[in-house]
Design a binder for these strands. Structure first.
Lengths: 349, 349
DNA sequence: GCCTCCGATTGAAAGGTTTCAAGTTCGAGC
DNA sequence: GCTCGAACTTGAAACCTTTCAATCGGAGGC
């Protein structure tokens, strides 16, 4: 259903007023108008009032391009997000935003949606726009454009990923440790046949979380083969359902009694499918997720998960970015936060 | 845990090369460099190669401000989102993004986070940046700044809200109808005492969805009082849990047998709390949500919900925006999509 | 009444790109 | 060898704001 409105858009004639027009209307010089805008204290109250009136009447809108051209750098940050539909990243973004807000900066969020091409497009645009700095959760932390951008003077901070060489600041969470505490929790509960649900391999975090899981099993004296590998193509709810089907389809003797998922989306999909196929959670299958997104706690069987300090991640990254942008003695820093297990019903004994 | 890296950032000396430097290095004029950038076909292959080499060597980065200053308008759209953590809006954003992508435009996402002040800040910034246009889900559709911005020549399209006066294009979904089909579904299943969970009142959609619910009840011959009102302070999971506590606490004789929630976040919170308090879903309480976010289907008791064409919403809004930006005969249009019920286990008989 | 000083205001330059009319070069055709 | 036109290339203007040295006007001190 659609309705057209015929009313003539009552656009005023002139395209848009600039400082010049305002100056003319107020009977002052360009410089004075600029002063009203940028250093109001240097202008007498009377003049200021006159200029402000003129601005209002003409509907003056500052031209940021011209301002920037002179100023050199904008007061905007940008976060190039990996996946806007994953609540984990939107929480990180909130942390960034609140930190940016405190410094009177605006935040533009760009969504690469897991596409390296899109990520490059945005990085280039942002660089061209001379933003203060860019926070990015890269599709591939080795992307050379990241260095390129930083080298040309736009600070870049890597969020939730790490890199061997310290050419950027980065903020991440210890994923190996996270995998370890998840599996230790399951071992404590008496589970011996544990599945690791995750993939693809190329994602560093999947590798790290699995490595942690294996380390926990080894420490416990079990053979690593005790880890049942359930590979997924992506970290999505749909893939989690697929994993659920495969696990439910295993013969009881071989079926793991617990599953550790590389993230909560997988875990939620797994949980749903298991319940649908008649497996009881946690009795037949205990489940641990990762990220502790809001929906993990809100599931009908609340999900045990490994919590990452998402907001903190964003805040700290922003602070590092601003330091890099403003402090000439800036030293790159690799911050590693510690994850924490949140036990809920999905692993209750 | 933190690690400092002492390596000297090997910044090159010169701050940044401009067209002028490239021209000098390549031994051509400014105009030619600009042509290489904007109309490569007008430049001989040999010259182009030389210029491109110079650009690479100098690490030339186009200055978007200067370009814009001349061009007048950028090739960027922006979406001012109401709540980045609500999956509904991130899906809308994806629709916008894919439409923008097809037109070779970049999309910047800004999160007003339900704050009118923040919304105004972003609208002003975007206007100053001369973006092609702004899509916005406003905190308050009557916000005068929306008109202001549009009047000064930056097209504004309202997403997922409507307005009486047709001063903008808008794209929304028929919320009254949505409320109606949700409750009709419950009536069909034999429910007679139905709760409406939602609030606050000031949100237009809450009003509309309730109005639809009431209309359905009236049509069914029941008295409107059959609608049990459960007010919430916001449309969040936490508020949904609160509602669950209140409903579970009602004496069985007064307790509704079904609940229609103003959105899925409420419904998920409600579902969780009910399960935790021993109410069976759908036997003791059937639940219908609204939005059909991915997590509704992924809940352990999959949620019946009213689906809105989220991606479509974003796509259509973007098309309208681009028409307004490029077509001089543009007519404002109010598009209203039709919602659709998706029945799942939470209302299974 | 003159001089100094100070705050308020001015005017011109600068910032990097695009555009476009005007200029140059080169080769073909006569 | 000359003319003509096509294909390229050039140089200057324009975009709009900010900055800063210079100027102005008036108040206070002598």
């Amino acid at each position: 259903m659609t309705r057209k409105s015929g009313d003539v858009s009552s656009f005023s004639a002139a395209r848009s007023a600039g400082v010049k027009d305002v100056a003319a209307a107020a009977g002052v010089s360009l410089g004075t108008v600029s002063n009203v805008l940028n250093r109001p204290d240097r202008v007498s109250a009377r003049t200021r009032a006159r200029v402000e009136k003129a601005m209002a009447e003409l509907g003056f809108v500052r031209n940021e391009s011209a301002r920037l051209l002179r100023a050199g750098r904008s007061s905007t940050l940008a976060y190039v997000m990996l996946d806007a539909t994953n609540p984990f990243f939107t929480d990180v973004a909130q942390g960034i935003e609140s930190a940016a807000d405190e410094h009177d900066l605006s935040l533009f969020i760009c969504n690469s949606d897991n596409s390296a091409a899109r990520e490059r497009k945005y990085l280039t645009r942002l660089q061209e726009q001379r933003v203060q700095g860019v926070l990015v959760t890269p599709v591939d932390p080795m992307e050379p454009l990241l260095d390129e951008v930083a080298r040309h003077g736009t600070p870049v901070v890597i969020v939730d990923r790490t890199r061997d060489k310290a050419t950027h600041c980065s903020v991440a969470v210890d994923d190996v440790l996270g995998g370890r505490i998840a599996v230790e929790h399951l071992l404590d509960l008496g589970h011996r046949r544990v599945a690791f649900v995750g993939g693809p391999e190329r994602i560093g975090q999947v590798r790290d979380r699995r490595a942690g899981a294996i380390a926990a099993l080894e420490d416990a004296g079990g053979d690593p083969p005790d880890l049942v590998e359930v590979r997924t193509e992506a970290l999505t709810v749909a893939e989690g359902r697929g994993a659920g089907e495969r696990i439910a389809g295993m013969p009881t003797s071989a079926r793991p009694t617990a599953a550790f998922c590389a993230n909560d989306l997988l875990a939620l999909g797994l949980l749903q499918k298991c319940v649908a196929l008649g497996l009881r959670v946690p009795d037949d299958l205990a489940i641990v997720g990762y990220d502790d997104i809001e929906f993990a706690a809100a599931a009908a069987v609340p999900l045990t998960s490994v919590r990452q300090p998402r907001r903190q991640l964003g805040r700290r990254a922003t602070e590092l970015l601003l330091d890099e942008a403003t402090n000439p003695d800036h030293q790159h820093e690799q911050v590693l936060f510690t994850p924490e297990l949140v036990a809920r019903a999905s692993t209750r004994r």
